[in-house]
Amino acid sequence: MTEQFIQQLVNGLMLGAIYALIALGYTMVYGVLRLINFAHGDVYMVGAYLAYYTSMQWVNRELINPYALLVIMLFVSMIGCSLLGLLIERVAYRPLREAPRISVLITAIGVSLLLEYGGLLVFKTAPPPSIAEEVRGAAMQTPLVLFGVAIDKGQLAVLSVTLVLMILLWQFVTNTQTGRAMRAVAHDFDTAALMGINVDRIVAITFLIGSALAGAGGMMNATALGTPLTTFYGLMPGVKAFVAAVLGGIGNIPGAVLGGIILGLAEAMVVFADPFIPGFELTGYKDAVTFVILIGVLLVKPSGIFGSPVEKV
């Protein structure tokens, strides 16, 4: 029972870490632009595809070290996605800087649809490919035994990479000139511009970082879970990460991380609770928990856990 609980805890943490990575992109963009970037989940999808194509280039060559392959995949996904994020911002959102927010929101949905359906022309979808199990298995075959609980190395790797990326992000936001400028823009867009901050540059950097994190999430999830890829791969994780961002208080960076972890744990715990509450087939509702939480948050504390109670806009 304890072992099962700890295993579920690890499951939930890993899931939560990925949600948190994606949620960071939502929350940072919302912070600077007050925009819910609906295309963010699709950037995650592109990240997964980039990892897939990279793995296909290398998987049959014995020369390459399996760990190196995973690192290369991670970097290709992150760099590819950050470029895509920059492009989306430049082409779709910057021309609408002065437009009403609803126009930008609709544009975001448009970009999302463009990536999902346009992606059908570019990416392999029939049959839906998945990153070969050997890619993960070669590096992560034997589980690590910790306090009598077998923990998969892949899960630990995902957790550590996520942790490192979050610490780097936090250092960047709090301790660098650009990070300070980013916080200033988030605080007050117009005044920051008046103070001599190049807001276009800051917005571009925000998209770059957020998209890179989504790319990392896409690569890690696709490799670890093996879900066959379609251009709609990012739909559900995107929606859940969005809920995580709202739960933590949209616009708040630690909030997004906390929200993601809570969602991940909630999903795992619903399944853990199933045997104790027979007759409800709880496990089938694992993915619906997210929406129950979202409705709960909006009813009780719409600003989220760390969100400021005063509406800024």
Partner: peptide, 14 residues
């Protein structure tokens, strides 16, 4: 839930 669930580890742990 087919199409939505990508992480089956919680169920498999049970």
């Amino acid at each position: 839930e087919g199409g939505s669930t990508q992480d089956f580890k919680p169920q498999l742990t049970n």
